[in-house]
Design a protein around this nucleic acid. Structure first.
Ligand SMILES: [Mn+2]
Ligand SMILES: [Mn+2]
Ligand SMILES: [Zn+2]
Ligand SMILES: [Zn+2]
Lengths: 156, 156
DNA sequence: AAAGTTATTTAGAAATATTCTAAATATGAT
DNA sequence: ATCATATTTAGAATATTTCTAAATAACTTT
């Protein structure tokens, strides 16, 4: 996650980089996704921005997120409940999925990334060109905790 | 994948094990899913069985697959195109996802499974109980090949 | 700075996908 | 054979996603 909120100027540059016009809708949608740790659906993004931006239509949110994903500006995240969700966090990372709350929780771990990447490097995929990968760890959040923390196990 | 086709008798036993009644619909749906390497959606299952079983309704297919999944008889497979798909293959394995054809291709590799499992064992998840995990490898199938083969890279 | 070119957005309709309802039926137990 | 109950059904109701064609706004060119 970004510590400092992203500026419109930065978003404009990102869009220009991909040859996308910097419309006000795109700025708002991208900014919203950056601020959200929720891995929201298109509908959720629409709901969040709607009060402050009543003129942005739902179809635009769908199309915009799709365009972003196709251009690598955001990432599609598949969810086991069958909903398509989005993530502004595009560098390779993994997710915990809570089957109770349907939350998707970021799980960043370079060691894990490298472990898998190195394994894949040893394999020859004959008819398949790998672009990226993501590990989905399914389970259940213990619901009276707000956050999920992970740390190394102490050695015995 | 099972070499020998599963029998109705075996499916009945599986259902009994979970306290589910062995209705003809369930037998047909489960058998169909076992035979399909496609990781189909509910709709696809419905289409496949419909000619031979015109009386099985779409709602039943949806509900049945859901019931199966909730009972661990089948597994839900998330797909990056946002569709919810099912897999009769419940033991832990991974998937290649072709962003072109939207195919989900099984990728079984015990070494990889163990690698990830052992990594997770070294981690302490404070507020999260892990049930299982799956790696989704995204990429593109080279389309004039029918199948995807994976083998170890020869050492240089 | 104005005009031109084109991508994007919009509202609403249309198309799809999923769930619900209440009556009918089938299953497994007694 | 009967009972109690889970399951299925058709169709309606919802929910989700995409499409359409007109209006608008962004960027380029002058
Ligand atoms: Mn869907
Ligand atoms: Mn849907
Ligand atoms: Zn994420
Ligand atoms: Zn599979």
């Amino acid at each position: 996650m970004l510590e400092r909120p992203i500026t419109y100027q930065e978003i404009k540059e990102k869009l220009a980089l991909h040859g996308l016009k910097a419309t006000s809708q795109r700025l708002v949608i991208y900014e919203t996704l950056c601020k959200s740790p929720q891995h929201p659906t298109a509908e959720m993004v629409f709901d969040w921005i709607h009060t402050a931006n009543p003129s942005i239509s739902l179809a635009t949110v769908y199309k915009t997120l799709d365009t972003f994903a196709d251009n690598g500006l955001v990432r599609r995240v598949a969810s086991e409940d069958g909903s398509l969700r989005f993530d502004a966090h595009v560098d390779s990372h993994n997710h915990l999925y809570c089957t109770n709350t349907k939350e998707i929780i970021d799980f960043e771990d370079d060691t894990l990334q490298n472990l898998i990447q190195e394994f894949l490097n040893t394999k020859q995929f004959e008819n398949f060109v790998i672009k990226d990968f993501q590990l989905q760890i399914n389970g259940q959040k213990i619901d009276h905790y707000k956050t999920v923390k992970v740390h190394d196990k102490e050695k015995k």
